[in-house]
Design a protein around this nucleic acid. Structure first.
Lengths: 334, 334
DNA sequence: TTGTACGCGTTATCAC
DNA sequence: GTGATAACGCGTACAA
């Protein structure tokens, strides 16, 4: 059915070895011969079987990218960074949306073991660390994004969440706010825990007492942000500013605020985190913290490629800082 | 290095054929033998090489999904639909973001020819129809989403844009609007053309004269929606309602309106199209038209699988209708 | 029920 | 500069 290297060889009256040579741009082949082969390829419409190639080369040039939820707002930019950098290295990207199924590790293991992919990038995952480390020990390239490895055996590119939250909270303090709430994803999530710590640390640095009532947790979704904000507005003495740990939750918070007939930032200031696309489409435009997702994705691929090429498993940990982007949702009280 | 079927055979003291049998859940193998093989597999931590499998089976169980821009707001849901349905058929999905590079067709052709993927789903693409049809003629499975094939040789799942725009515009008319503008992506895009036609058709049906000045075109981005809206607001007699062909442009339109100190929907009504995630996060929540993207993706996979299994190239065209979802951005003038 | 041997389409080694 | 030929790891007639 399909045309193979053998057909080309026959058509061009050469051996398959020669065909393979021109296919791989080897210099040691006569110009005339090359021409003939190229013509045959063109004529028969041939293209090499990647399956055969992968088999003999023991390499697929595909990297797997596993996310728990492809609809996560941070996904697109991160994915673009990964795809773009992967392309640069001659790799393709295969996506896996686990839908939080947590069969993540099984899928990952199967993929790697079967050589379907040469390496894997994990993001936002709650995967079993043990399994991953086992994989790692078998010399399978794995890189985590966003999530630090507790035992530091897996290469990681993460955010400096503590510093980021510290910076955000400090910004609100600089603007004259003292009653500052924090909407978080809670102590169960790593980023939540770290950002809470940064938030508290900033308060303390300025001599502001931490108020348990101003810390409310939910999940990384608009609806949850809405609920959290409502809880805060129901307080006897609501905050004048809220640091929301994810922009998508901030969008939900907007809803709750508008529902009460309040204004942003006149009545209450909102500071987000992540800087996703919708942040600048909200009204007023959301002041937030950019996480450089595209670049994070690129770095993830860099680490993975390094891992793939390396003799021995590396375990580099890259921690990236974030940047505040001022827009219109925070009011200065000064 | 890696453990192969041969190692398992040796370990279990059987032939590779037998191992292959248990691997593929063949019934014709003794229970005891199977146990032994399974044990060996477990012990050695074996998993079959997909490269070898693909080569002998002439099949990868991967489908390619090509989009011009992964950050398009309609992408996530569509992708989820595709991934979900593909998984159901035992397929994986490989994403390709062409960044409008329009080397799309070359990439697609290479992929298919090289058997890296068993079929391809194209979305939002401006790819060369001729190339695609050539592919199709060579019995390569290709399905288009959103874009109808002019010559009807490629299977397609598309939207009934005309009907959709007709419905949307009629809705505004029912609400008492007569001065209705349309922000569009223009006559160059297929969906733009069809939606313009639907819009005009609805106006005519109600005896409202089409006003050239109320039709303003841009690109499918927030910034462009902003610019288009500004142009409309600069009109001597601005519209009372605007039908925006894409929600992301509507989000930009909101900006322009707020910038002028106007209110939605009190001063001007906005009707979107697409129902992307941010639509319900805007304030006021955007009334729009849902395109059932998840389902579209599922159907795309259905068609592709059919195509892959089929003896002869099919060329089915599925046209899906849309649904209006009423929220808060349209005011009744009655 | 089990095993032998060949083929899938490439690349790589070694001759010529 | 070019050509046999042996892998790569698996599925599958065909035989036993």
């Amino acid at each position: 059915m399909a045309v193979t290297i053998k057909d080309i060889a026959q058509e061009a009256s050469v051996s398959i070895t020669t065909v393979s040579r021109v296919l791989n741009d080897r210099p040691d082949v006569n110009a005339k011969t090359r021409r003939a082969v190229l013509d045959a390829i063109e004529k028969l419409g041939y293209s090499p079987s990647s399956a055969a190639r992968n088999l003999v080369l023991q390499k697929s040039n595909v990297i797997g990218f596993i996310v728990p939820d492809i609809t996560n707002a941070s996904f697109p930019e991160l994915a673009r960074g990964i795809v773009s950098r992967a392309k640069h290295y001659g790799y393709r990207v295969m996506f896996f949306d686990t839908q939080h199924d947590s069969a993540v590790e099984k899928e990952a293991i199967r993929l790697l073991r079967s050589k379907q992919v040469d390496g894997i990038i994990l993001s936002f995952n709650e995967a079993n660390q043990e399994e991953l480390e086992k994989l790692k020990n078998e010399r399978f390239p794995v890189v985590q994004i966003y999530r630090k490895s507790s035992t530091n055996v897996i290469s990681t590119v993460a955010l400096d969440n503590h510093r980021s939250a510290f910076m955000g909270t400090s910004y609100l303090i600089e603007k004259g706010h003292t009653r500052i709430a924090h909407i978080t994803t809670g102590y169960q999530t790593q980023s939540g825990k770290e950002r809470i710590a940064g938030y508290r640390s900033a308060l303390e640095s300025s001599g502001i007492a931490f108020d348990e009532a101003l810390l409310v947790s939910g999940t990384n979704q608009a609806g949850s942000g809405y609920a959290c904000m409502k809880a805060l507005l129901d307080l006897g003495l609501p905050p004048t500013a809220v640091f929301v740990s994810h922009d998508i939750m901030a969008a939900g918070a907007y809803d709750a605020i508008y529902e009460r007939g309040l204004r942003i930032p006149e009545d209450i200031s909102i500071l987000g985190h992540d800087n996703i696309e919708i942040s600048r489409l909200l009204h007023p435009k959301l002041t937030t913290i950019d996480t450089h997702k595209f670049s994070l994705g690129e770095t993830g691929v860099d680490l993975l490629i390094e891992e793939i090429a390396a003799e021995f498993p590396s375990d580099r940990e890259v921690v990236r800082s974030t940047d505040l982007v001022e827009r219109d949702s925070v009011r200065s009280l000064l």
